[in-house]
Design a protein around this nucleic acid. Structure first.
Length: 457
RNA sequence: GUGGAUGUAGCUCAGUUGGUUAGAGCAUCAGAUUGUGAUUCUGAGGGUCGCGGGUUCGAGUCCCGUCUUUCACCCCA
């Protein structure tokens, strides 16, 4: 028989990995809840019409589509089928798709439940998403996102709190060396206006987003064929080369944005966010105003964020921004402004693994293994087991009659720190052989004393 | 979606210009030790050399296809 395999870009998570993953999930969940966000889950699959057109052309290509049930070809448009054009045919044989992110399903949920929701609505959502990407380092076809979004308020408090949540989550995870990059779509538009490239915004943003990766020359090479003049490129890089503190950068841009309404709006917003952070008594050590930050998802309209862990060759581990028109895309008449961000658990995991940041005792396992030498001691052991569990001590008993050697070996492999060996003598006297697996020390104690010992480290 | 690399035991890898029966370490199992693991010693099991085709007297080795993993691009968490 052929060995089973996994679909490309997906993974199993064994117990050791799960312990670490859960540490990340719990840390993030606690932060979300502490900031007043409430949980939401949505289905893995959405109607394709919900998903398409929200992520730009590239995004649509990366959607996993689900074949219609039944004899889907019978109902398909025969004329379309004869064209053999997959793109065209898709819509007639697949009406569902796997979610690509959590923000769009959330917007769909908000519009569907408009009347039941009290605004501003703060929700968090921790679920997997799927992208039909080609996998590579830090990039999977199935991965978990942890989203927190607020919808129904323009307040820049939300942006400030996003920064606080990132800071707090990373503190909990033990990640110290990271950068929260922040920018504003208005500022990007301002730049486009200033260099006279308003018609060509998208290619401009895509190109400058790569600046720190490919460098100035390559960005210019990419833009020249798209109709950018040398003069506009020179101006562009005068702006992009802005250096210094966040305040310095703002001041410099202010001087260039005389003629740009949206540029000024962007600057005002950012300054307000910085100002709010001060009032929280929060340090903005990790926050960097990065004029070249653009981000791909097309639905952002205001502040945008991206978080990178330094000295690790993994893309961004978190990102987000404000989107003003997303609910409108689902036919909502009144505009609801939303802002949110997302942690990429899988990348955070990879980064923490690379930096050796997982706490040592993270693997969840029993504290005690009860070992036994014959049937009678096994029965006696069940009482011991119950006594341990009644005290909240995670414990298990070896289920088979096996050599003591094998039982101790089992404890060893599962990294269970204590064992209790029960034989005829122990069952008779009630003095149990309590063994510390690390030190190899063993003493005979009554169960009450053993419980005490385990509880006080 | 485009281009490059990769695949030999459960894991990490050797394997000569193509030549007999494909090896090692670790892991597993058993025993030395019928009540003591993580350190010792002895032994055993485990392979359609990713899969399919081709060249050849002969292929783990060369050629083609395919899949996996991986790197870069596109894009992104």
């Amino acid at each position: 028989m052929e060995k089973p395999t996994l679909p490309k870009g997906t993974r199993d998570f064994g117990p050791a990995v799960m312990a670490k993953r859960q540490f990340i999930f719990e840390t993030i969940r606690n932060v979300f809840q502490k900031f007043g966000f409430q949980p939401l889950e949505t289905p893995a699959m959405e109607n394709l019409s919900t998903l398409t057109g929200k992520y730009g052309e590239e995004g649509d290509q990366l959607l996993f589509k689900i074949l219609n049930s039944g004899d889907f070809l019978k109902d398909a448009d025969a004329e379309l089928l004869s064209t053999k054009s997959s793109k065209q045919i898709t819509s007639s044989i697949a009406e569902k798709g796997l979610r690509y992110d959590l923000t769009v399903p959330f917007a769909r949920f908000v519009v569907m439940n408009r009347n039941e929701i009290t605004f501003p609505f703060k929700r968090y959502q921790i679920q997997p998403v799927w992208r039909a990407d080609r996998p590579q380092k830090g990039r999977y076809r199935e991965f978990y996102q942890c989203d927190a979004d607020v919808v129904g308020t323009d307040s820049l408090l939300c942006e400030a709190e996003i920064i606080l949540m990132i800071t707090e989550a990373f503190k909990g995870l033990g990640i110290v060396d990271y950068t929260i990059k922040i920018n504003h779509r208005g500022i990007l538009s301002g730049i486009a206006e200033t260099i006279g490239a308003k018609q060509n915004e998208t290619s401009l943003f895509v190109a400058i987003d790569k600046l720190d990766k490919i460098g100035e020359e390559k960005v210019k090479e990419e833009l020249r064929p798209k109709g950018f003049s040398e003069e506009s490129l020179t101006t562009l890089f005068e702006i992009l080369h802005v250096k210094g503190s966040n305040t310095n950068k703002s001041a410099f841009l202010q001087s260039r944005f005389d003629a740009s309404e949206s540029g000024q709006k962007g600057l005002r917003d950012l300054q307000e966010v910085f100002n709010l952070l001060k009032n929280y008594n929060a340090s903005d050590n990790h926050v960097e105003f990065d004029v070249s930050l653009a981000r791909g998802l097309s639905y952002y309209t205001g502040c945008i964020f991206e978080v990178k862990i330094n000295n690790v060759a993994i893309g961004s581990v978190s990102g987000g921004g404000r989107y003003d028109n997303l609910t409108q895309a689902f036919g909502d008449k009144e505009n609801l402004s939303g802002v949110g961000f997302s942690f990429g658990v899988d990348r955070i995991y990879d980064a923490m693994e690379e930096l050796n940041l997982f706490p040592k005792g993270a693997t969840a396992t029993s504290k005690v293994l009860v070992c036994h030498l014959d049937d009678d001691s096994l029965y006696y052991g069940l009482g011991v087991l119950s006594a341990l569990r009644a005290e909240g001590i995670a414990s298990e008993i070896y289920p088979d009659n096996a050599k003591l050697k094998k039982q101790l070996d089992f404890a060893n492999k599962k990294a269970i720190p204590y064992t209790i060996v029960i034989g005829p003598d122990e069952a008779q006297s009630g003095l149990l052989a309590f063994k510390n697996m690390d030190r190899g020390e063993q003493e005979k104690l009554p169960i009450e004393r053993i419980i005490e010992k385990i509880k006080q480290p």
